[in-house]
Simulated scan of single mutants.
Amino acid sequence: MNDRYRIEHVADLPPALAAVLGILALALVVGVVWALLRLPDHTKLRSPEARERARRREESQKRQRKLRARRESLQRRARRQP
């Protein structure tokens, strides 16, 4: 049974039944999209402890970036001086 055979069978349906099937298919797609949009945000931190850890980690990473930039700057300056 190939696709053309199935499509011809759908085309042979009475118009009311084909409309109902089309509406049901559309409702299924809308339902799936709606359900996906309603999923909870998995990136949101729920507990206060987790938010605090994330804040401290972000501050630590910021300090590390500044230290790395300063170290690289000093190394470049040392290479330029004879």
Results as ranks from 00 to 15, higher is better:
K44S: 06
Q61N: 12
R79A: 10
S73H: 13
E52N: 12
G31D: 08
L74S: 05
L24S: 09
R57P: 03
E59K: 00
R6A: 10
V10T: 01
A69G: 00
P48Q: 02
R77I: 06
K66W: 05
A69M: 07
P14C: 03
A69Q: 12
V29R: 00
R79M: 07
R51G: 02
A11H: 09
R65L: 10
E58G: 02
D12P: 06
I23T: 10
R56W: 03
R71H: 12
A50F: 05
S47A: 14
L24A: 11
A35W: 11
N2P: 04
P48G: 03
P14V: 02
R38H: 05
R63Y: 08
S47W: 11
E49C: 03
L67D: 13
A78V: 02
E8V: 03
H9G: 06
N2Y: 04
D12V: 03
A16Y: 13
V30A: 14
P82H: 06
R71W: 14
A69D: 13
H42Q: 14
E8L: 06
H42I: 12
L74D: 09
R38S: 09
L39K: 09
V33Y: 07
S47N: 13
L45I: 08
L13G: 04
P40A: 03
A50I: 08
R53N: 13
R57G: 08
R79F: 02
V30G: 04
Q75S: 07
V20M: 02
L37V: 06
D3A: 12
Q81T: 11
E59I: 05
H42D: 14
R65S: 02
S60P: 06
V33W: 11
Q64D: 09
R68A: 13
R80V: 05
L28N: 04
S60R: 12
Y5I: 08
V29S: 01
K44A: 15
L67P: 00
V33A: 12
L74Q: 11
Y5H: 06
R68V: 02
R46Q: 07
M1D: 01
S60E: 13
R79V: 06
L28M: 08
E52K: 15
L24R: 12
R63V: 08
V10H: 01
A27V: 02
K44N: 04
D3S: 12
V30M: 02
E49R: 14
R80T: 02
V20N: 04
L36N: 13
D3N: 11
G22D: 15
